[in-house]
Design a protein around this nucleic acid. Structure first.
Lengths: 230, 230
DNA sequence: ATATCTATTATGTATAGACATATCGATCAT
DNA sequence: ATGATCGATATGTCTATACATAATAGATAT
């Protein structure tokens, strides 16, 4: 175990056990360096992790303060659906439903209004059961290759993630009552709950793709775990 | 703008524009330091941010490789419900529904089985409309003060976040069909979709609290934005 | 061919020192 | 009182150097 890890663990202990209570200032770097018998850089290395975890806030001259927690943050990972299904031990299935040029009602914000578009609908299955209904717009200005690509063999999800760069992502999570399309494709009753992930990616200001992924509520959930100690 | 920020921006550019394509190795630190005319430490400072964003992976001897993206990661922040409602410009309301000692059906995993428990139900309102139904177990071994606290004035959510330390959190997001309790309190029809957040916190191995927060699907969604460039 | 050792190599940790910069507080002028 | 000025101070950036360590690739032995 490295020096900075020991120091980080000790500082973590002092914070979680409120030896350094929320809102209080901790000793400054020179003092901590003296206490732990290391160089200032090593204290900074340990502190960097605490800042990243959001446990302390630092400001020049003001010093380092234990954050008064007002929210729970965690990192959310949304894997490629095929990997997710395979990881669960189930058989993955895929079916292209439609691929046509032109827009769709998906583009609520109008970000894709003036662009040449490809509209794709497909279904991902887990052991033969519909798992995700994917409804997607692709901006052909950003991804010209998509126009000629055959999405029968590989889902647009996977193809895009591998092939197309992006610099910004907006993700929305919500619950919805299934409309008739979702009900038909997911083989559930209309009005029953679906878990929806909507994601839009951009490359700088250029919109790349917008996707709405709907899941039957009994098959899908998202779990995140965070532990302050590693 | 600092040197490491310029270097990070340039490296970001090379990655998103696939000058350094996914899966390839980048030049090693000494070479980059020479190219940009800085010390190795400055390259490492810039690189640290790219590692944190998950854009590159580094291994000793093997070097630094552009990550082949197979998932979308983003940071999810769940604020205290009162702050969330106030931030939206609405009036916040709160009502305690029940607070009694003893367990409940909430504890599916049995983590709280042998502990003395407090079971609290309450409702958070936005402009008078039910916004969140909170159903919570508190382990009195971890939070003895909770036994004597009056939760009529302040929600357990807020009280716990301020007062009680934790070292690990598990969060589950899912959609559900409203059961009769959710329907009654949220004033929606039974079977209509609710967005559920379930969270369990621990201090080391000691379970602290388990909460299930249910929202009417038309009032609630979670949005995350990530931009590679700051 | 297979396994084991060994040298090499790129990243990781740690140190020490110099200087930059935001900002808090006190002092001073209006 | 109010506002401007300025010194003190804690964090932030950067350099240069030394050594540690994991992992690979190649040499060697079985």
């Amino acid at each position: 175990m490295h020096a900075y890890e020991k120091i980080r663990a000790e500082m973590l202990h002092r914070i979680t056990r409120q030896i350094w209570p929320a809102g209080s200032n901790l000793p400054h770097e020179e003092q901590l360096a003296a206490e732990f018998g290391v160089a200032r850089g090593t204290i900074r290395r340990a502190m960097a992790d605490l800042v990243q975890q959001g446990l302390v806030e630092r400001r020049r001259k003001a010093g380092t303060r234990v954050t008064a927690r007002s929210a729970h943050s965690s990192t959310l990972t949304i894997p490629i659906v095929r990997n997710e299904i395979i990881a669960s031990g189930a058989q993955y299935g895929y079916k292209l439903l439609a691929a046509e040029k032109g827009g769709s009602a998906l583009d609520m914000t109008g970000d894709f209004k003036d662009a040449p578009l490809l509209h794709i609908c497909c279904l991902h299955l887990s052991d033969g059961r519909p798992y995700q209904f994917e409804d997607r717009l692709i901006n052909l200005d950003a991804v010209p290759d998509a126009a000629d690509h055959d999405f029968n063999g590989m889902s647009p999800n996977e193809w895009l993630v591998e092939k197309v760069p992006y610099s910004a992502v907006r993700t929305i999570l919500r619950a919805e009552a299934a409309d008739s399309a979702q009900a038909r494709y997911l083989k559930i009753r209309k009005g029953s709950p679906v878990f929806v992930i909507e994601r839009q990616t951009r490359l700088d200001i250029l919109p790349v793709t917008l996707v709405k992924m709907s899941h039957p509520s009994d098959l899908f959930s998202i779990t995140t775990q965070t532990s302050l100690f590693d």
